[in-house]
Design a protein around this nucleic acid. Structure first.
Length: 223
DNA sequence: AAAACGGGGGC
DNA sequence: GCCCCAGTTTT
């Protein structure tokens, strides 16, 4: 797995541009704060990341703690995050999450999966993000990119992200559990796209089921 | 199993 | 103008 990640990183560097830095609201200046990781991850669902990062920073400039957000005016929250997708639902949820943190978890973000999954708007992917990024606990957040690429490379053979998570966790060294997410996601955005992936730039063709089963017309053209 | 939530960016 | 996007909840 370490080799795979290294080859992905090399390809990403070689393909110069995208690198969409400052990814995911988890690597902002506020990283390490479980509350901000939790809220930032909830807000990032199904939205482009540069945009979300900006919004998250704006939100935390105004509301810094669960107490702040729990008592915030919902319309002000909505106004701040209005430029991201699903902003209406997300505003309600992050306020509810903050309230529940206070009422059920002593104002702190819980560090076990069962408690995290009780929070509104928190599913497996978000819960695992909090576990591994905020608490350095074993967890593999499986989003569409991790799921797709793991299957294309034959690391797993699964239908659901849950299965992928389970199978991957047996395969991956604990040290790499955050890297799998970080690297696969960037690779998925920039090279191993859902459709017309840039296989020309990829050094993993030899082990790739998608590549070996694709005709040249389904791959991205070079010119 | 499928629909619904959704504004912004790429083309 | 059309299509897609670091999911989760509800039907």
């Amino acid at each position: 797995m370490g080799v795979i990640i290294k080859k992905m990183e090399q390809a990403l560097n070689r393909e110069k541009p995208p690198r969409l830095t400052a990814l995911r609201g988890l690597q902002m200046e506020e990283q390490g704060d479980p509350f901000k990781i939790l809220i930032g991850t909830i807000l990032s669902a199904r939205t482009r990341d540069e945009n979300t990062t900006r919004v998250v920073n704006k939100l935390f400039a105004r509301f810094k703690t669960p107490q702040d957000l729990a008592s915030a005016d919902i319309d002000e929250i909505k106004k701040i995050i209005h430029s991201i997708g699903f902003y209406n639902i997300k505003a309600e949820r992050i306020k509810q999450v903050s309230q529940m943190l206070i009422s059920k978890f002593g104002g702190r973000v819980p560090s076990d999966i069962d408690s995290l999954l009780k929070l509104p708007g928190v599913g497996r992917k978000t819960a695992n993000c909090v576990l591994v990024y905020a608490f350095d606990k074993p967890a593999i957040p499986v989003d569409v990119h991790v799921h797709r690429i793991s299957n294309r490379l034959g690391l797993v053979s699964t239908k659901t992200p849950e299965q992928t998570e389970q199978d991957l966790s047996k395969l991956v060294d604990r040290k790499l559990w955050t890297k799998v997410n970080d690297t696969f996601v960037m690779y998925g955005q920039n090279i191993c796209l859902p459709v017309r992936p840039n296989c020309k730039a990829c050094d993993l063709k030899k082990m790739c089921r998608y590549y070996s089963s694709s005709s040249s017309t389904t791959l991205a053209s070079s010119s």
